[in-house]
Computed example of a mutant assay.
Amino acid sequence: MDQHVTALPYERPEGCPFDPPAGLAPLREREPLTRLRYPDGHLGWLATGYATVRAIAADPRFSSRQELMHFPIPGGPEGPLPPGTVGDMTAMDAPEHTRYRRLLAGKFTVRRMRQLTSRVEEITAQHLDAMERNGPAVDLVEAYAHPVPALMICELLGVPEADREVFKRRAAAISDPGSSLDEQVAAMTGLGEFVHELALAKRAHPTDDVLSDLTGSDLTDAELAGVGSFLLAAGLDTTANMLGLGTFALLSHPEQAAALRADPGLADQAVEELLRHLSIVHTGIRTALEDVEMDGRLIRAGESVTLSVQAANRDPARFDDPDSLDLRRRATGHLAFGHGIHQCLGQQLARVEMRVAFPALFTRFPTLRLAVPPEDVPLRGAMGIYGVRSLPVTWGPTG
């Protein structure tokens, strides 16, 4: 019998909020594919090497269907997982996934997303102005990191101006650390109903937005609403947490923040490096549909493989000095957006938002700094998307 790891390493080194769990690197150095005992007793696999994670993510012999997966983190769902919700492309395989992807791919081209840059700049400037009025101390998550991508999702989905404040409040309540589970479920239900009503309104009266474009397809009302909810979930929480955690990382590496402030043209490289370094979506899961030989090991049909994105993005076989944050690094090829057919559809919009938001923030507030000790910044450690719950910051004279 193969030796196996009894649990997925998920505890970060103390005082290192940006680094992967300490147990991942030794596993990767020993072998890129390791047997893993899942909390439900399933004996599957853990992939930690860059080349291995990338290969499995792109291999059609591995399924992304949720009902075939085993969950690797203790305290997660017990027993068989349900199928993914209608419209959730992350939980589909071809040909169903292909149908959805073809409908959406043309809506997220690099060219179209770059056309949104001026709108991102407007929204960013409005929130920086508000910070300046309300400062010199704010919670950056509440004042900037969350509302900027929330309003861009509104633009993308065509949420009417009159409904945007309601939309933002409901979206914020889902990830509010002060909300109870019942309140978060109620917020999710309310937001789902909101998107469903929006989808029906777009079918009746299309406007110039992605949801309206999709009303001309063969999607049912339920599928249209499901795709809207999927785009909301995929495009809001991830970008909001990258803006929050990315700012925390830059404030914790002042020489890197200074480099970005001195050269806003560094933004493209800075965003890619922050994505690689932080890897806020830590893991993916695939299940073998047939026996597959990988790295000299036999993965049998039905066995789940946990893909450690954070370990892969810190693999020294792919990135030199991978544990350092270096905004001048050419970090292309990182796996923060996934790989293969499930590579993030909205990655270009996320890039546009971050390329504008990070330099604008550090240029407007050159003395920006944490308002609390770094160890007091509350982290989203137990959630599927890593980040900060809040980020108290201040600016102005330091003397």
Rank of each mutant, 00 (worst) to 15 (best):
S304V: 01
M152C: 06
A94M: 00
Y38I: 05
E303S: 07
I174T: 09
R369Y: 10
T220A: 04
H277T: 06
Q348G: 05
T283K: 04
D2Y: 04
D182C: 11
P26W: 03
Q347E: 11
G178F: 11
G296I: 02
T247A: 11
V281S: 05
L46T: 09
M188K: 07
L361Q: 05
G15L: 07
P378K: 11
A382I: 13
E293S: 12
G76I: 12
R389E: 14
L335V: 09
T207K: 11
Y100K: 02
S279P: 01
I285Y: 02
L236M: 03
P20S: 03
P264Q: 15
H70C: 14
V141L: 12
V138A: 00
A130R: 14
P378R: 10
L245K: 06
A171C: 12
D40A: 09
L224W: 01
V372H: 08
V148D: 01
A249T: 06
G75M: 08
P82D: 09
N241F: 11
E121G: 01
D139C: 03
R65C: 11
P9T: 06
D129C: 03
P60K: 09
G178E: 14
L231G: 03
A350C: 10
H4R: 15
E183M: 12
I285A: 12
E161T: 07
